[in-house]
Design a binder for these strands. Structure first.
Lengths: 131, 131
DNA sequence: GTAAAGCTTCCACCGCACTAGAAGGTCAAG
DNA sequence: CTTGACCTTCTAGTGCGGTGGAAGCTTTAC
């Protein structure tokens, strides 16, 4: 299976697949006589796994670490569980931050509604955002 | 006021202030005989405005656009209001995305708790994340 | 035989907000 | 007079997940 066919199967571009190889997510495959990459069918499974893991919010570096454990012949379940816990905590933190930003923006929105543009002087650039 | 004093006043590094100039947020100030940047006191206000606007989640490009309007002699209130509305919508969208990711991660966490590592075979790399 | 599609490599760039390093000029204090 | 803090410019790198172009092979279809 050449790179174009694999890309079509996985719903990726050939560029992305080469990038994954470069990033250490895919082992360099054997080559045809002409130097074309010649993938085994299992590579599609691997790409599907990468997609699923990305959908869960894992980074490529984390996915690479999971694949490395599996490639080393061990089940990566424990590591995956840790990563999930860790990401869940990060997502919660990020949501809390954004909720704060949201509140600040809503407050600015109210202030904007109450602002007369005649009160906006040069000195503070824009009274809505200042102070 | 030279760049070091301005940086100390604003709580920034000299590098960041030069970067702001390069990014079009600050006009190139006059220079001393030795070629040092020599800022008027109002620049501190401008930097404080940039800080406040950043705290509201605006990007430097957006802040630059606000400053450009003010520098053009107009009150930027209307533009600022639009940007706030726009960002509020973006933040809401982002929170919704993260809430979805959070739910997905929580679901994976439950699945992980129910997974026996003996069931994790090579073929699907990690059953927790697959499917 | 020829044209199009597909493959190869390499280097460079996207956004975002800085940060780091190199190599040098200037100024005040001791 | 020298040390050290402060200033200048320039280039380049950070993290993240790719995307883009150029220049040149190979394969496939007609």
């Amino acid at each position: 299976m050449r790179i174009g066919a694999l890309a079509a199967t996985a719903g990726l571009t050939t560029r992305t697949i080469r990038f994954y190889e470069h990033a250490g997510l895919l082992a360099p495959p054997p080559r045809t006589g002409a130097g074309y990459r010649d993938y085994p069918a299992e590579t599609a499974t691997r790409l599907a796994f990468i997609r699923d893991a990305q959908a869960a919010g894992l980074t490529l570096a984390e996915i690479r670490s999971i694949l490395a454990i599996r490639d080393g012949g061990h089940p990566p379940c424990r590591h995956v569980t840790d990563l999930i816990d860790q990401h869940l905590a990060q997502v919660d933190e990020r949501i809390a931050e954004l909720t704060q930003t949201r509140a600040a923006l809503a407050s600015l929105q109210r202030r904007a509604a109450a602002t007369d543009s005649a009160d906006c002087h040069d000195t503070d650039i824009c009274t809505i955002l200042t102070g």
